[in-house]
Design a protein around this nucleic acid. Structure first.
Lengths: 175, 175
DNA sequence: TATTGTTATACTCTATAACTATA
DNA sequence: TATAGTTATAGAGTATAACAATA
């Protein structure tokens, strides 16, 4: 067999770039989840807190759509956060069926701790790269994410297809 | 608040590099699993076929250790592959408790199809990058993987800790 | 009749424990 | 007594379906 094409960095496609992405990505996710344990949070909680902070007063419906999480699953996740006093379910002033979600002061504190944790995590994870290499890596990944139509800030989890709901509004928007 | 440190490519740590790695990695894994469906294989099967190819005749014990998969889980995965005629469990000549695992001809065919699929997957995934950028990205990821002590070719899945068994032999080795 | 949030249920994936047959 | 493979069981995590209150 002639060596096809230019120097591919590795020979076996299963040890290739796609595998590396998946391997390092899974590692990153697992280590992040680990760091969240002392905060008594799981990764989905983190995403929820972040979205509520940016869109105070939104409904569970809206939250679930933004994160690609099923309504029934949101109930349990929000129960956790409410029980711990990080999130409040206030009655919506306009629609008595729905709630308006708000961060409490404790919720804002938790979000700050969470941001610190995420920063530490990222530093530890990328210890092998210097500052400019990290920027270059982030650029590559952002370009892949954009080309693959991943919604910024939304983790695919393990959905079969990203974006289970048909609609994905035109603007990549704030979140 | 003064802007601390140099230009970080993104402001919010949850939209940072670590998140991108996890997001793109999960996407890569999901799309790969999708491409495996027509082959009637799941990602763990792929890893198993690959290891058996490289280490013909090894035991389930050895296989499980190499992949970080529990023995009980291997049973079902190997049952799948054996039922489909891709893998053979031969009696070990030296120890009647254990099997020696071998790829069948059909198994080798499947592995080839799998390699093609992986190549197509990688091409589609990295469409946003040209050849030299892909090489650069692979280098970054390989360096992170090495620094984080990930075993080459072994997917962390979602284990709490990588490397559940204590021993990890000195050499990063063939697989 | 449609929608919001809820509950109950089921399914997938993975880990733990107990068992058997060898060693 | 310890080990290889197996079986049975249980636990996450997530999706589906049916339901009550409201629109």
């Amino acid at each position: 067999m002639a060596r096809t094409r230019a120097s591919s960095p590795s020979l076996d496609p299963m040890d290739g770039l796609a595998f590396l992405l998946s391997q390092v990505g899974a590692h990153a996710a697992a280590r992040f989840a680990e760091r969240l344990v002392p905060l008594e949070l799981a990764p989905p909680h983190a995403g929820i807190l972040k979205v509520i902070k940016r869109a105070d007063g939104l409904s569970q419906q809206a939250l679930g759509e933004k994160l690609g999480v099923f309504p029934s699953r949101l109930v349990a996740l929000l129960d956790d956060l409410e029980k711990r006093g990080l999130v409040e379910r206030r009655d919506s002033p306009t629609d008595r069926r729905s709630y308006a979600l708000y961060l409490t002061d404790a919720g804002r504190d938790a979000l700050e701790k969470l941001d610190r944790t995420a920063r530490e995590h990222q530093d530890a994870l990328c210890a092998a790269l210097d500052e400019s290499e990290r920027a270059q890596l982030a650029d590559y990944l952002a370009r892949i994410a954009a080309q693959q139509q991943l919604t910024p800030g939304v983790h695919p989890g393990f959905r079969k297809l990203d974006r289970p709901e048909g609609r994905r509004g035109g603007s990549p928007g704030p979140c």
